[in-house]
Nucleic acid binder design. Structure first.
Lengths: 225, 225
DNA sequence: GAATTTTTTTATTATTTATTTATAAGTTTC
DNA sequence: GAAACTTATAAATAAATAATAAAAAAATTC
């Protein structure tokens, strides 16, 4: 089963270590960046489910980093900062942060706030089960069943299918899918999509040659129904 | 635009007054309840967009109130409490609270956190659907239905039909249509239009030989009705 | 650190869509 | 109502897009 992925962007080694231990012990997959530039690149190369962002980065103003991320990154961002001024908090929240904790923070509270943020991922409730015909996806357990049989999906396959099931009936363009799953640097790589759509169809369709769930919208994208 | 509605559940009169002033000045509609029982009834009778809930209510434990609310209330709940113990915060968040502020709090921060919580729920259901007789086009989903049956259109056919449906009743000249769909270099290629109008009619008209939707205006262009 | 799984890349084939061409059917104008 | 012009339809060709298989590379697991 694929773990939820959290990207920590913080320049203090000690803090990263602390977060890594706390997060991995709660069964999250953690990646780390020590500065803004690195963090943005990592987020773009493999979009995490949530970002923990320190505002006091050495190479760039944290608020600016947040603004940059929010031009394309739609998953939760939680700010961790020594700045406890009200105006900093308000600014960050209005720039699209989902939560703001001041350092030093309490670990269990942070973990609870991460759970809360991940639960509320905009749009579809992230704690429910999406059922669609013979398919059902448990977003909390991160599992997929076809006619009550568990299906084994890789992390990427799961993310892709989740995106489809959260947007049933809607045409999702190649660009949108690539941006959401692989990051904004991959919007040209439609071949990735073809390969993974093919793999998904093999796993979820009764007849992969006559797909009923993932419908091709030639020249535009795909639609799940 | 209708104001967003916030329900304040708090037993302290002063606090309610303070919140009322702060919230109304930020253009929210505010209703108030002084205890748990009243609060739950008010939320049930007229569900607000967001609830501000004090945990220290006289008649019932705040965590229990939260649990009761969460059995049916899906909009954001923000906790305001004098309790600053980590375990209280974690418990409330895990019971479905969206945020937790300890009293005394800073007003602008609260307002910003309210904005953040409301941002996550709104905006998802802005489906602009154009309906025209038996035809309906969902611009967000990028789908077209004829008498509730999905119609399969190619990318060009869809763009053309969207242009028509957005300009219902208006005559669109050949030049305009060609420029919009194919680009300014194709103003001369009226044959393209004829081919695609023909294909569209086959798909959307009851009797393609007696078109009711796409009307030919000989020598000028076409009109959608 | 070897084995396994997953992702990425490459190559080939299949399918769909756009464009062109040819011809028939309407319209307009005088 | 016939010539001139415009529009409609069908079908062939070209181009673009999509699917599939299989390899190489990278990441993960034990």
């Amino acid at each position: 089963m694929s773990k939820e992925h959290i990207l920590v962007i913080d320049d203090e080694t000690q803090m990263r270590k602390l977060l890594e231990i706390a997060l991995t012990s709660h069964d999250y997959k953690v990646t780390e960046a020590a500065n803004a530039k690195e963090g943005i690149i990592m987020a773009a190369n493999h979009p995490p489910d949530l970002i923990l962002l320190d505002l006091g980065l050495p190479d760039e103003n944290g608020q600016e980093v947040l603004k940059k991320l929010r031009t394309w990154f739609n998953n939760p961002v939680i700010i961790l900062s020594v700045q406890k001024e009200e105006e900093d908090i308000v600014e960050a929240l209005d720039h699209g942060a989902n939560d703001y904790l001041t350092k030093p923070f309490r670990t269990n509270e942070l973990i609870a706030r991460i759970r809360t943020a991940l639960r509320n991922v905009s749009g579809v409730k992230n704690n429910s089960v999406i059922v669609c015909d013979d398919l059902s996806m448990d977003l909390a357990a991160r599992t997929v069943k076809r006619s009550n049989e568990l299906i084994k999906l890789t992390a990427t396959e799961y993310s892709l299918l989740a995106l489809f099931m959260k947007n049933e009936g809607r045409v999702l363009t190649h660009q949108f899918l690539l941006k959401e799953i692989w990051g904004p640097g991959y919007i040209e790589d439609t071949q990735y999509l073809r390969v993974f759509i093919g793999q998904l169809r093999k796993k979820i369709e009764v007849d992969p040659n006559r797909p009923k769930h993932i419908i091709t919208e030639s020249g535009v994208g795909y639609r799940f129904s």
